[in-house]
Computed example of a mutant assay.
Amino acid sequence: MVENVNVMLKLFIEYLQIERNYSQYTIGSYEHDVKGFFMFMSEQNISGVKDVTYSDIRIYLTKLYDEKLARKSVARKISSLRSFYKFLLREKMIEDNPFTLVSIPKAEKRLPNFFYGEEMEQLFDACKSDTPLGLRNLALLELFYATGIRVGECSQLLLKDVDFFLSTILVHGKGQKDRYIPFGSFAHDALEQYIQNGRNQLVKNHHMHDFLFVNFRGGPLTTRGIRVILNKILKDSTYNGKIHPHMLRHTFATHLLQNGADMRTVQELLGHAFLSSTQKYTHVTNEYLRKSYMSHHPRA
């Protein structure tokens, strides 16, 4: 069984890479979830993926809940396995998909975390430095806030993807979908300063490449490297709280809607395939308005 399922998993990963064009981070999550289920199959003496039944999946779900996993984590694992079995069904390696019978538990509804204007200013102040790394960090932060791009999209940006004349970037998004996103004067100036006075200094002792953002050695900046940089910016600022790259994406969308942007425009800028993915930000803006009202109206 081990050799057989490993071949199936290898083919599934190739499908995610080539046909779905998923990021390495996303593919890693799928692989981790599928391998975890393989371990469960071994524990239950299930000889192969064809032999998995609905009852087996119910036992697996019970095991996950016994491990105190959050509903969101359980839902992700089931979704990964459903996709894996759907792929096997398409390739005629199995005859039915028992995971279609399993309902994914609803995740807790949480409003996206975002930064207020004054909090963003604290982060920008922490980046003010004329060093090559300081210029890079400011350009990185300004671009995230100006465009709302994902971390994976940012790490793949090339120099040629930046159009300073039109003040736009070409972003290669999920599912091989490209989109152009405009950026403002602050991001324009920060990017220009970084490319002219920071990037050249960082890559001079490294093999030449065209990636926009580079690490301290001059090599392409990875998604992990971006997270490390953002944590350092937070540590150097006066802001007290947590940060993750998606908070900047949430901030971008929330601030646009708060200032009158329409939902369809925000959807296109974010690269969301469905409007429902963008609509969660209306809840954020409505909550923001409610709090502002309660804080400032004399008879609230």
Rank of each mutant, 00 (worst) to 15 (best):
T62R: 09
G225H: 07
V7S: 11
T131L: 12
N45L: 15
V266Q: 00
L64R: 06
Y15I: 14
K174Y: 11
H172N: 12
M41T: 04
Y54A: 14
F183L: 02
P105L: 03
D189T: 08
H206M: 08
Q196W: 09
Y116A: 13
D262M: 02
C154M: 15
V2S: 06
R227K: 10
T265D: 07
L202E: 05
E43I: 13
N200V: 14
T26P: 12
M247F: 00
K128Q: 14
F40L: 09
E43A: 07
F274M: 11
K232C: 13
K92H: 11
M247S: 09
Y281V: 07
S83D: 01
G48L: 07
I46Y: 02
K35F: 07
N137W: 09
G36S: 04
A187V: 01
Y30M: 00
P220F: 11
G198R: 04
H296S: 05
F38M: 11
G175V: 01
E31L: 01
F40H: 05
G152V: 09
R264I: 11
K177A: 08
G260V: 02
H246K: 08
A75E: 10
F165R: 06
R76D: 08
L289N: 12
Q258W: 02
E14N: 14
S42M: 04
E119S: 08
N97G: 05
H297V: 10
R136L: 03
R227A: 03
H206Q: 15
Q267G: 10
S277H: 11
K204C: 07
R82E: 07
D210S: 03
Q122S: 03
N231K: 15
L221E: 08
P245M: 08
Q196S: 14
K50G: 08
T168Y: 01
A253E: 06
F87R: 00
V228G: 03
P220L: 04
I233P: 11
Q156M: 15
R224P: 05
D96P: 12
F211A: 13
K232I: 07
S83N: 12
I195N: 11
T131W: 07
G218Q: 10
I149H: 03
N4A: 13
L159R: 07
A273R: 02
I13Y: 09
V214H: 01
